[in-house]
């Protein structure tokens, strides 16, 4: 980074520290914070969407659909997320490539030969020839999708409960005004359910934050991966040899997670107050009294 860093083994003290903390690997470490935030930013709405679909399906009057929605939530939530992450990504990747192979390959032989999974070159996702950035993007997308499936199951449960919590009288009134089922759903149920869903969803968000250390299982190099990699003791084979410093890196992560949680708590508390406005709940009542 700096000219002074050309020969790291000759420098000492503060210069050494400055060079060390700006090494290419540290830059990757800092960037991985952005990766984690980006993943959270994409996963949260995706999981919410899957949860919404799951909850809507579970409420459906059509039995198979309702069973599908409930089964999805029950099964995925019954399994520790870590176990799910350990085999699901590979399965998902193979599944996608198998489906693609049906469309693009001439040879439709069964791709699972023993433990080996073999489809034609054209069916690879992304193609073997694609640049590394596509492989990374694809890996990231798989990770996002896997996270979204797991947390979507939790969200489905919260939203299902929230939909049930909207006062029945409201829905009946809407029907009395001649709204169709779809209209009741869109105009009455969905806008009102959020206030009931928010406590559960806030918790889910907190959980999601704290599940990000599992990202490295999905092949995404996240902050924990880099902290472990940078902190481990380094021999002279490295430019900046040092003893085992994992403790310091992990303490840094601890501070990061605590700050992130704190900020989230503050934002969610405000959002909760905002959503409670004008609602027929204890929270809304408190707001009304405070204003009066």
């Amino acid at each position: 980074m700096f000219a002074a860093c050309a020969d790291p083994k000759a420098i000492e003290g503060l210069t050494w520290a400055a060079c060390y903390l700006t090494s290419g690997k540290h830059i990757d470490f800092y960037l991985s914070f952005a990766t984690v935030l980006l993943l959270l930013a994409i996963t949260a709405p995706t999981a919410l969407a899957m949860g919404f679909a799951g909850a809507t399906a579970a409420r459906s009057r059509f039995l198979p659909l309702s069973l599908l929605g409930k089964g999805y939530a029950a099964i995925v939530r019954g399994v520790p997320d870590i176990v799910f992450f350990l085999f699901f990504v590979i399965a998902l990747d193979q599944g996608i490539e198998y489906l693609k192979s049906l469309a693009v390959c001439d040879d439709h032989s069964w791709p699972w030969q023993g433990l080996e999974f073999r489809v034609c070159q054209e069916a690879k996702v992304p193609l073997g020839a694609s640049s590394a950035i596509w492989h990374q993007a694809y890996g990231f997308a798989l990770a996002v999708f896997t996270f979204a499936i797991v947390f979507g199951a939790f969200a489905a449960n919260v939203l299902y409960g929230a939909m049930g919590a909207v006062p029945k009288a409201q829905l009946e009134t809407a029907e009395a005004y001649g709204m169709s089922q779809a209209q009741v759903f869109r105009r009455i149920l969905v806008p009102q359910m959020w206030v009931y869903a928010l406590p559960g969803l806030s918790n889910l968000w907190m959980i999601l934050i704290k599940a990000t250390p599992l990202l490295f299982l999905l092949g995404v190099k996240d902050i924990v991966y880099w902290a472990r990699e940078l902190g481990g003791s380094k021999t002279q084979a490295y430019e900046y040899p040092h003893p085992d410093w994992r403790l310091w890196y992990f303490l840094g992560l601890l501070v990061f997670y605590l700050c992130f949680t704190k900020v989230s708590e503050v934002v969610l508390a405000r959002l909760s107050a905002r959503l409670s406005r004008g609602q027929a709940t204890a929270g809304g009542e408190a707001l009304r009294k405070a204003a009066a």
Partner: peptide
Amino acid sequence: RGSPLFIQFFL
């Protein structure tokens, strides 16, 4: 509640 269990184990 604010930190991952992962890090709690390590520390």
